[in-house]
Write a protein that binds this DNA or RNA. Structure first.
Lengths: 108, 108
DNA sequence: CTATAATGCAACTTGTCGGTTGCCTATTTG
DNA sequence: CAAATAGGCAACCGACAAGTTGCATTATAG
């Protein structure tokens, strides 16, 4: 999964709210998840599809309705991506610091 | 800063690449950062503005050119946001587990 | 001082996004 | 079986995003 796709999916207040709801409720039906968002069920459904395409969420048809549950692995993936960026940045800082603290690495 | 704004800014391959470049190079000029992306300088500049609006990046005019440097605090903010989601999710799991392991909390 | 290098600003085009409406399908439930 | 419930599919619209082009501005180099 492309990191950008995941971030893009998270980059909308409605979708972010959906994800937040899902971290609290183990799983919901589409209808339940779509209520109280100020948009139509169909509108909400589209957002849900974006989350599903980014694999942030899994849709499991169950009889008449569809259960939605979070896929925490993708969330973890996104987090690790940022952590790696920070790590690389820190490394860069450290390298610079070392260079500054030892002006000429010729002798102590 | 809205979390959704930050994620949205990260949700594009070009912008993500820019951020990655910046974690390696302490700071670049706009021109340097805009090269080799397969788009115009002006196109790149727009992406850069999105990153700046999300406070992922700071633009510092310096004589004839503009230095771009990363703001790791916003990156950290985004990471923490996801970490909190995961924490909430884990808590939910734990609560469920406890409930299952102690079927009726009436007596041992 | 002039040329050029680095950037800014604005207009415009094209495609995608967020959202809606209307209608169809399938599963419960009474 | 009939009614209600949960959802799917497709067309449509307005707004915005991505990207371009053209030209103006400012600072450094010769």
């Amino acid at each position: 999964m492309e990191a950008a796709t995941v971030f893009r999916a998270l980059g909308d207040p409605v979708r972010l709210q959906m994800v937040q709801r899902l971290t609290g409720n183990r799983s919901c039906t589409i209808g339940a998840l779509s209520g109280g968002l100020g948009i139509t069920r169909q509108g909400a459904r589209k957002h849900l599809q974006v989350l599903a395409d980014a694999e942030l969420v899994v849709l499991e048809p169950k009889g008449r309705d569809v259960l939605v549950h979070l896929d925490p692995r993708t969330l973890e993936l996104a987090m690790r991506f940022i952590a790696d960026l920070e790590r690389k940045w820190e490394a860069r800082l450290d390298a610079l610091r070392e260079f500054v603290e030892e002006p000429p690495p010729i002798e102590g």
